[in-house]
Write a protein that binds this DNA or RNA. Sequence first.
DNA 1: TTAATATATAACGATGTCCTTATACGTTAG
DNA 2: CTAACGTATAAGGACATCGTTATATATTAA
Lengths: 118, 118
Amino acid sequence: MLTIARPEGITVKAKLFRGFADPSRLAILDALRARPMTVGEIVEATGLSQPNASSHLACLHDCGLVVREQDGRYVRYQISDRRVSMLLRLGDELLADVARGVYECTRYGAPKAGRGRR
Amino acid sequence: MLTIARPEGITVKAKLFRGFADPSRLAILDALRARPMTVGEIVEATGLSQPNASSHLACLHDCGLVVREQDGRYVRYQISDRRVSMLLRLGDELLADVARGVYECTRYGAPKAGRGRR
DNA sequence: TTAATATATAACGATGTCCTTATACGTTAG
DNA sequence: CTAACGTATAAGGACATCGTTATATATTAA
């Protein structure tokens, strides 16, 4: 009967992309592109608060975008798969070529001028 | 001094990925992978309401992920660039291989069982 | 053991986001 | 012109998400 036509898969895939769709998580992933890092190094590289970084790392880890490796009292994270890096690079390219209008995309909750982004 | 270390680019790139990170927009993009479609066809293919589909299409268009072409009183949309499709495919692959845990990623606002999706 | 360091979790406030229900706009048919 | 159709926008409520400030856990050092 095909009533709804929204396969489960779509929701899950959207969730996957959400991993990349937040500035903090993306900053973390971008930092990890260079090399594996401990939480402390990530905090320093991104400027995020430590609890915030941890929280997003947990999210990225649950989603399988990063893997963790305990090292004494440090925890070292790294990107889990080459394709995660590929996705990040494709994002860069799209941004440069076809998606320059992104920063004007003010659908939903128009930006009201200097709204908060710290 | 590197105080904040969050280049403008990160925010914009996160915004780009947001285009893919919502079930409705992703359903639209996924539908358009097959072929260009009018709004009506998209509505039928995805099961979205017409206003909702239009809204998300406007969003995707502003961001440069789709292009539009007026055809009489119809408007036909299509994916703007091959790399958009590549991103979608990479998403599929990641989901199959390394990101199977995504649907359990309940950081932030745990799902509370059948929360609302429609 | 106790203290110190590194990381993780909890609770809560402040927005952001999405959907729905009207309604407006634009184009073609009669 | 007027009606009908296809698409777009507006306003509003319901909820999701993010960041912060405590605080908890884990591991090593002394």
